[in-house]
Amino acid sequence: MKPAADAPVVLSTHGLVSGYERDLPIIRGVDMKVTKGEFLLLLGPNGAGKSTLVKTIAGLVPVHAGTIVQEGVDLTSMPPHLRVRHGLAFVPQTENVFTTMTIHENLLVAAQILPKASRAGRIADLYAMFPDLLRLKTLRAGQLSGGQRQMLAVARALIVEPSVLILDEPSAGLAPRIVREVFDNLKAVNATGVTTILVEQNVKAALAIADRAIVLVEGQVRLEGDAHSLGDDAVMAELYLGARHPSAEARP
């Protein structure tokens, strides 16, 4: 969903510095703003800190300085589960489902923070959105294929009706056909009004579904702009696309 030009900011970071060790910041001063309903793409070469940035926002990496604000609430020192309650959902790149539990149990776990009365209904909604999951609901998540796992992980994140959904490379390790499917799903979710932040290596495919993109280099924002024009940007091509595609197919 393309947000209106004056759409309110839902999530922002200010001078964010974070990293696992005090003396070794990985994110080094990131300011970013995400507006309501926007589909934002986070790009950058390997080791740029994309994953660390989204994990920091989700509450998994210690913040050294700066703030994270969502809809007027300061999340900076909130534990992860309270951020979920506040409407921030995160899908990690790996180990993003509970493999020893069934699909249904995975959804039940996530639904626990909803009021008791609405849990079953919300799970039913998700099954309606992902009919494959309903078919497999008694299967242990560890037995699912990569694409099915990703689907479950997204469904689990959506249970709480988040206002912001963050995904860390959901396409990693998936076959191209499945990647398209996952992206279509994400686009559909975004179209319902869920602000989406996506970390991706699959630059071309992702630029096609995103509204805006931010390019991160060495823990700082290097470039940011409209998704469609960014695909043609020369710096971008040199920095990122060029490195990955020596034929420079992204250039005109």
Binding site: Y20, E21, I26, N46, G47, G49, K50, S51, T52, L60, V61, Q93, T94, E95, E169, A172
Partner: peptide
């Protein structure tokens, strides 16, 4: 000092950071 073992592949995640 580092490396929290409880299924947290944080510092050693090979893909990023």
């Amino acid at each position: 000092l580092r490396r929290s073992p409880p299924a947290t592949p944080l510092p050693s995640t090979p893909s990023e950071t």
